[in-house]
Computed example of a mutant assay.
Amino acid sequence: MKNYIVLDLEWNQSAGGKEDTIENFPFEIIEIGAVKLNESLEEVGEFRRLIKPKVYKELHEKILEVTHMDEKLLMEEGMDFVTAFEEFAEWWGEGAVFCTWGSMDLTELQRNLTYYGLTNPFKKPLLYYDVQKLYSLLHGDGKDRQSLDIAVFESGMMEERPFHRALDDAHYTGRIMQSMEFEKVKEYWSTDYYRLPESPEEEVYLVFPEYSKYISRPFPTKLDAIADKTVTDLLCCKCNRMLRKKIRWFSVNQKFYTALGCCPVHGNVKGKIRMRRSEDGQVYVVKTMKLVREDEIGEIYEKKEEARKKRVEKTKVRKQNKKKGALPLS
């Protein structure tokens, strides 16, 4: 039986700023809240645990301001993270499909698992529903992200419960799932990037109604990534056919690369590569392939021209600097 586990976390951070932040552990979880929905999206259970912080023991002023958490109560009644998570894992049971508002909760949960040396129980790749994204697909343009409180207000389901506490936010997120036309967007899984593919065989390929997504294994550098053929292949998001390139991969800022291909059956397909950093500082790629209309192609050519002009200007500056450096001293 499938259960939707709607999860929300509250976490603390270093009150002393970045200087006192532990590497790869920016947020320490201080509260776990979740509701369980059955296959009919009916709420059938809830879970809440307070967690006593061990690393960032002083609550950051922003955390106090947003959550209105009682710091004394947290220190007195909070349990240790290991026990709280073990109880949470036992509670969610079999057939769990995780749902969150936004993309951070599952990443930070896994960071906390790593810090405390716990076994990661989640499937790899970890697919979940980002309800914030689904809400945008149904009620917006699919790109802009609405805050939970505004979405709740827009949906007319405000209750006496406050926001910015884990169980309350999980409850509201579950209510939004119940109210939305979930069947229309249930194909739009999100992927957590905390644990990446470790080999070409583990690399992720996902197909959605309007686009496809590829997630690579990590590479030492951007150059290594962009030199990999699988990374730069242009494939149709509908039929997976290798495409004829109309515009080869180019970049304006070295973070995003764009290309344009043509499928003889489905037409023009835009490729977009995002370069991202893994936890250990390597580079991995998230590539999307999406059908584009004729009136969208001009924008791609404009970006290519912008990239060309930047490249010419950099070459010009480099030659000028080299020339200045070669001048004899008087």
Results as ranks from 00 to 15, higher is better:
F27P: 02
G281Y: 10
K303F: 15
L235N: 09
F25V: 10
K143E: 05
A96T: 09
E61G: 08
G78E: 01
L196T: 09
A227H: 08
K2I: 12
P220S: 15
V204W: 15
S251M: 05
L126I: 06
D168A: 04
E61N: 10
A326C: 15
M180P: 01
F122I: 03
K245Y: 14
L167I: 06
E154W: 11
E61M: 12
E181V: 06
A259E: 07
V252Y: 08
Q132D: 03
W92G: 02
F25C: 11
K143T: 09
D192H: 01
P264D: 15
F182M: 01
D105P: 01
C239H: 00
A89Q: 01
K184R: 08
Y129A: 07
L37F: 03
L7F: 04
H164M: 04
E76Q: 07
D224S: 11
K287P: 06
I226Y: 15
E203S: 12
R274P: 03
T21M: 12
L41R: 09
K246P: 14
T258C: 05
T315C: 15
V35S: 00
I22Y: 06
K290C: 13
D144T: 11
L167A: 07
E279R: 15
P200C: 10
K184Q: 11
F98V: 06
E202V: 05
W189M: 08
P264R: 07
F153V: 12
F98T: 09
R318V: 12
P162H: 08
M104V: 03
M157G: 12
Y4G: 10
R175W: 08
E46W: 03
A15F: 13
L127A: 10
R276G: 03
E31D: 01
R308W: 09
Y257S: 06
H266R: 14
T232H: 11
E302G: 07
V55T: 09
L329V: 03
I300S: 04
K184W: 10
